[in-house]
Design a binder for these strands. Structure first.
Lengths: 323, 323
DNA sequence: ATGAAAGCGCTAACAC
DNA sequence: GTGTTAGCGCTTTCAT
């Protein structure tokens, strides 16, 4: 009887035991499809993610999986090949058909809102709501704060300015980091030098680095991702500029190899775990108590990991400076 | 009417159109739970994966997701916190309850078989079957061959022997690489030097590297993973041994940053995409044609990516060698 | 070629 | 507290 399996009250221990025994001997396994059909609830959360194995997205996914499981839900996954509104709308659509009680959009893209008729709550992780649903929640990784902290770290070391290699601007995450960098600079009344743009890859960091290496006025660079930072460092080294003696580099993510590249990379750690956990808490509340209003999650703490790729600027007489 | 949505024959175009129109205006969305309940098929494949964001597992997952989607199935995901037989049995169990038509075990652990009553076909990706199910399939990445190729690359360069930093031996993948390394050495009648063991992390590669750096007889090392290779190189560099002039290092995986670390890492590329695609083809066949027998997938091609971390051994007079 | 009807295995609501 | 029953929205089979 269902009352036993659903842990409902008012069941005599004797009866419960009898049912359990029978179930075991019969090899009974509850059928979720029937449950879902009868109750209208699937106990499943759908996740729309990016189809890439990058460290950031992959870590977030792992954290989400854990959070979903801890919340007692099962997980359906769809990933979008191309991170455009149509793609994510398609993903949401397919999740809805499969049947989910809530959706997590872990695809920090934000260009034009895709509209779908969504009747379950949706959590946007690391991006503002891109469409409206029954209820939209948000939780972030505090990227603006982290980017400010990264820039401040370099400024505090004595650099007069900090250059930035940004991520692709259709990524909300990239724009947040850019904003944080700009804030830090403006707060101290420094102008913002021209920005280089990459696509998160080490190759793009390398390309940007070749340009930057030519400008001897560059003494500090904040790369919006560790991979780009690693590519950047390689370009700098090849151009004969030492890191950190001539140029300081700070990354973003703290991927596992960051501590072991040469030189070990200073970076800021992304609080994936915390963001996923907080976000899911909201989502589950929205699912289980549809009425209450839910505030956005607070930003997680900032964690700058200082290693060997950053140092004070070279003491260099003014008249030696080019441009 | 269901005949329309299931693309069945014998439906007059007029009727089909009428139904489609009605569905659209009513905002009809088909309910999968009901479908599953009535048909006994969920059109969903369950994946058991490792709860880590490492490049290898993450890439495999991405490839699996794509293959599952291309096959027209939805995807349920469970990950195991701890990669032990009980964990994977639990994952399988929960997938079975949720309802899946087939299961992919992407958890290349192999220590003791966990037994569960599994009545759907199971694909073991990168590992031999760890338990018996209705039907078990396997597909691999050809790790033995890849490891042999990596070792041969070093031997062909003129190194008299090749040291190995292996992964944790409860990973089948780690044992395969070890076997490939050994094969290559024995094939040329070379003995196998003592093996160092790591845990895939750069930190463990670094630790192993500190030992290896002490032995001046070490001129070539094959690390079972790129991250370990990166840690190893760092340890070598810190010990004053140049790479590749004094010691050559080859990794395994070809993670995206490998080309940009210093020196750029020679490595072998893992054919995740191909393995996932081939494996899923088998799984889908097993689901849709339960009777036919299915052979294991063929190993994908080998791809050694030669970069700057490998070179011929230093020409060094015999009498300068310490043991 | 198409309508009608009987379940699939559960939950929820109702009796007792 | 516990047994009973009517659907949930489909697929499948049987009539037509």
């Amino acid at each position: 009887m269902s009352r036993v399996f659903n842990d409902e009250p008012y069941v005599a221990p004797a009866v419960r035991q009898r049912v359990l025994d029978a179930a075991k001997t019969l090899g009974y396994r509850r059928n979720n499809a029937a449950r879902a059909l009868a109750s209208g609830r699937t106990h499943t959360i759908g996740v729309v993610t990016l189809g890439t194995a990058g460290y950031g997205p992959a870590s977030l996914l792992v954290s989400i999986e854990r959070a979903v499981r801890d919340a007692g839900y099962a997980l359906r996954l769809v990933s979008t090949l191309d991170a455009d509104p149509a793609g994510i709308a398609g993903g949401v659509q397919s999740l809805l058909e499969q049947g989910v009680d809530g959706i997590v959009i872990s695809e920090p893209i934000d260009e034009g809102a895709a509209s779908v008729g969504v009747d379950v709550p949706v959590l946007f992780l690391g991006a503002p709501p891109a469409f409206t649903a029954a209820q939209t929640l948000t939780a972030g990784t505090g990227a603006v704060l982290l980017a400010r902290a990264a820039t401040d770290h370099l400024l505090d070391l004595g650099h007069t300015t900090v250059h930035h290699i940004a991520g692709p601007q259709r990524w909300y995450a990239a724009r947040e980091r850019l904003a944080g960098w700009r804030q830090a600079l403006e707060e101290r009344g420094r102008g913002t030098p021209p920005v280089s743009y990459g696509d998160w890859s080490a190759a793009s960091g390398y390309a940007a680095g070749r340009e930057l290496a030519r400008d001897s006025g560059v003494t500090a660079v904040f790369a919006a991702g560790d991979e780009m930072a690693i590519g950047l460092i390689r370009a700098l080294l090849e151009a004969g500029r030492r890191v950190p003696e001539d140029v300081s580099v700070i990354g973003f993510d703290d991927m596992p190899v960051a501590a072991y590249v040469t030189p070990p990379l200073t970076t800021v750690r992304q609080p994936f775990e915390a963001a996923a956990r907080e976000g899911l808490k909201l989502l589950v509340r929205a699912i289980e108590e549809p009425d209450v209003d839910i505030p956005p999650a607070a930003d997680p703490p900032v964690d700058v990991v200082a290693r060997a790729s950053t140092a004070p600027p070279p003491a260099r007489p003014q008249y030696l400076d080019s441009t």
